[in-house]
Structures are given as C-alpha cells and as structure tokens.
Design a binder for these strands. Structure first.
Length: 425
RNA sequence: GCGAGCGUAGCCAAGUGGUUAAGGCAGAGGAUUGUGAUUCCUCCAUUCGUGGGUUCGAUCCCCAUCGUUCGCCCCA
C-alpha cells in the first residue's frame, strides 16, 4: 500500500518495551558507577580505516558487514559495527592515558552490521560495553567479568553460563595455529566446506564449526591451552583463581575463539540456550595490542559488550513486568469540573504524584473503566456537584471505598495521601 | 552471501478458483444522560504485504518484489 516501513533489520522500540530498556540502563548505570566506570560517548560513524585497522581486514565484520559510505567531502566513513574501536580512538586522540592510572570506561548505543536479520540479530542493534585501559593485571579481567555477572544477575537473568578461554599472546597463537593446521591437514577432505576454506585463512575458527563430522575431528585436536607460554599460562591461572575467589562459576572452553583480531589472553562469553542460534549475550576479552595498533602508547586493555536486544529478549521471556506506577487517575465531567481537574492534576504532579488525566469527556462509567485499567490505586472524581463545592471524590479502586475531600485539603494532606497509597499497594 | 518457511484488521486467527472474507481479544457508542464486574445491542478489512501474470473470474494458482521467521556463515 505504499506505506513507508522501518528499514530491513531495524525496528521501533515501543513504549511497552522501553520499560525493559530503562530497567537495563538504570541497573547498568548503578553497577558501573559503583565500580568507578565512567561513561564515554563517541560518534556513530568513524573513518572506515579505523575499523579496518582495529577489527582486522580478514574478519567478516570488515569484509562484508560494514555500512560504509562516501560523504560529500569524498571521505570514506563507516557506521560503527562495534564500540571498542571508537572508544580506543578517543582514548588515544584525547591522550586519556596522561590522566594517569587505569581508565575505566563504559558506553552504550546503536551499532550497525549489514547481515541477514534473525531473532536476536539486526542490522541496527545496541550494545552496552566496558573497556578497562592501562592494566595488564589479571584482576582487571576478573573485575570486568564480575561486573558483567553482577549486572546480568541483578536483572534476574537465568540460565546463563560463562565460558572461559585464553588465546594467549600473538606468539603462542602462531605456534598453536601451525599445530592446528598440521593436525587438520590429513582430515582436509573430511572437513565441511566452510572449514576447508578456513584451514589456511583462520584455522582457529574450525574449532567452533557446527558440522558434526568436523566437531568429531576437533575432539582430538590440539588444545590452545597446551600452547600457552609460561607468562600466558600464569595470567590465565590467576584469572581463574580470582574468579573462584569471587565465587563466579565458569566453564573452560578451549574451543572458544573470538571473531575479532585484536583479542589476546582471556576470552569469555556469557551464553544462553534460549535464543536459538544467537547464544552469546555478552562477549569480551583482553586486547593488549589494540591501542598500539591504532597509534597509541603500549596499553594493555580488557573489556566486554552486551547485546542489548538479546538481553531484553531474554528478560521478556522471563515475563518480568515493570510497569510505570500511577498514583491517581483523574476523572471529570462538565466544563467547570474539567478545568478544575486539569489544575488539580498539575498541582498534584508538582507535589510528586504520578497522575493521569482523562481527556475523553465521556460518561463517568467509561472514565471509571479506564481508571480501573490504568493500574492506578485510586481515582479522583470531579462532577458538577464537586466543582460547585470545590471538592473531589477520592475513590480507592480496590476496595471501592469513596470519600469526599476538599480540593484544598487534598493538596495540603499529601503525607497522609502518600501513606494511604503505600498501604493500599 | 546461501537454503527453507511464512505474510488475512491494533493483536490472535478461520477460510475458499465463483455473488456479502468466519470467530475471538482490544477499541468506539448505547441499554445505565454521576461510578469500575457481568450481561445485552450496534459499529469496527469495498479487501487478504506490494506489483505483475494465468483465468470469464484470484485472498487462493504462477512470477517478481518487500518484510519477517528458522537454519548456515558470522557475531552481541
């Protein structure tokens, strides 16, 4: 019918759903604030080369998923596909390292990847992420994981498991990569076609193939954990020890590899079985080389990102209801009464009450029905008689009890009103 | 980028190559001109995502397109 719809892979978040988003944002602000993380807001688009260098030319994100365009000044720009590159660029550009010590940052916002939409996967989606810049201490790894755990738990997320791995430093990984290629080569023809292609380009990826025969072959493949040098091993051991000290359960998964080139040492994911193929709710790890790669000083770093659409899908599945709580629903009929209702509603709002004013002008019966459905514990009724006497009928919807009170008293006895609202609910 | 399924009102849906496209929820009005439940009555898709084709005739069959869902790839 020619109506313009939201573009493919984008969607509107309507008021009923926004309450979930606010719930997440409020919890995040509180938890991150307590841990001395500070919010950073970076641009939605960046120079294309930032992502090419930061994420890695060989990755799918850079290879086929970026929203890249040329602007009127002939610059190649890209809508950010993830948040880390921009945050690190800002860190370097504004020389935040000169502020000394460790920088703890967090961000939230829209990200863009050109992919086939699926449940829990869109072209415009939202992440909430943290980055700790300037610490190589394994306690930093443990801290970010603990904060993610805390946030997910606070939101009441169930059935979410933490997978943990180490991908070592670049030299460990190089040795491991060679060993893997050597192991897989004899099986080359038995691997699924995707994995055959990955054999030389990105052999680590073969490990998380979903093809049954490939998985079988992977069972006896060499483990990255046997290729970690002493330093990497010690780092990984300490991360695990700290998690145990924190009482955080995790599962070692030597097949866990991250998609982006910049990861080193710790890699982790929070996964669920309730999202179909999109199992990862939160993914992160350490990226000691990225800051330098982007032209900054040598700066170890660790962080994670939560996919908010996925998180909120899970919260909705758990049927948690967060409704905006109304205190009074105001109903009026008649010209004078309607004017009084308008003013009374506004004055009560100024006193801190949450008020919905019925604007329909329809019969009291209809207005009362709406009052009932609004979820407000009580309603205020003003008709001709009340308008004349400058009073209001205060009706408690649960009990049906009703009392007459003067409009002036209503505004001065706010403490008593508040008490009544509390006892009723 | 590849493979498969789906698209009938705000929501959930039945339906058939043949004049008027079930039903339910929600919504509006009324019975009740000042009080929430229940009940009852009335209204609520000139049209079946969009465009084209086949046909005397298409919501139904065919093609294309858009959207969506599931899987692969990949990722949050």
């Amino acid at each position: 019918m020619g109506l313009i719809q939201a573009s493919r892979g984008t969607r509107d978040i309507l008021p009923d759903e926004v309450v979930y988003w606010q719930q997440v944002e409020t919890a995040a602000r509180q938890i991150l604030g307590r841990a001395a993380y500070r919010e950073i807001r970076t641009p939605i688009f960046e120079q294309t080369s930032l992502f090419e260098r930061g994420i890695g030319e060989a990755t799918d994100i850079v290879g086929k998923e970026m929203y890249t365009f040329v602007d009127r000044g002939e610059r190649s720009l890209t809508l950010r596909p993830e948040g880390t590159a921009g945050a690190v660029r800002a860190f370097i550009e504004h020389k935040l390292h000169t502020q000394g010590g460790v920088q703890r940052l967090w961000y939230t916002g829209a990200m863009f990847r050109y992919e086939r939409p699926q449940a829990g996967r869109q072209r415009q989606f939202h992440q909430l992420g943290v980055e700790v810049l300037g610490s190589a201490d394994p306690r930093a790894d443990a801290e970010v994981i603990a904060i993610a755990t805390d946030l997910l738990q606070t939101l009441g997320l169930k059935d979410c498991t933490l997978s943990l791995n180490s991908v070592g430093n670049p030299s460990d990984r190089q040795h491991y990569r060679e060993a893997l290629v050597a192991y897989f080569q004899p099986y080359q023809t038995q691997l699924d076609s995707d994995s055959q292609e990955r054999l030389y380009r990105n052999p680590l990826r073969i490990l998380d193939s979903k093809d049954p025969r490939t998985q079988e072959i992977c069972q006896t493949a060499p483990s990255i954990l046997d290729y970690l040098g002493p330093e990497s091993q010690s780092h990984f051991q300490r991360v695990q020890q700290y998690l145990t000290d924190l009482g955080i359960a995790y599962q070692l998964n030597p097949c866990l590899v991250r998609g982006l080139d910049y990861y080193t040492h710790t890699a982790f994911e929070f996964q669920t079985e309730n999202l179909g193929a999109q199992a990862t709710v939160c993914g992160g790890g350490r990226y000691d080389g990225l800051v330098q790669e982007l032209g900054g000083p040598e700066t170890p770093a660790v962080g994670w990102a939560i996919g908010l659409e996925r998180l909120i899908l899970l919260l909705q599945q758990q049927a948690q209801v967060f409704s905006t709580q109304l205190d009074f629903y105001v109903v009026a009929r008649g010209e004078v009464a309607e004017a009084q209702a308008l003013c009374l509603a506004q004055k009560l709002r100024q006193q801190g009450f949450a008020i919905e004013l019925d604007l329909s002008g329809s019969a009291f019966g209809k207005q009362l029905k709406r009052a009932d459905r609004s979820g407000a514990p009580a309603c205020l009724i003003i008709g001709d008689a009340e308008a004349e006497a400058k009073t209001v009928q205060l009706k408690w919807l649960k009990s049906g009890q009703q009392q007459v009170i003067s409009q002036a008293d209503l505004l001065t006895q706010t403490e008593a009103l508040r008490q009544q609202l509390i006892t009723v609910s």
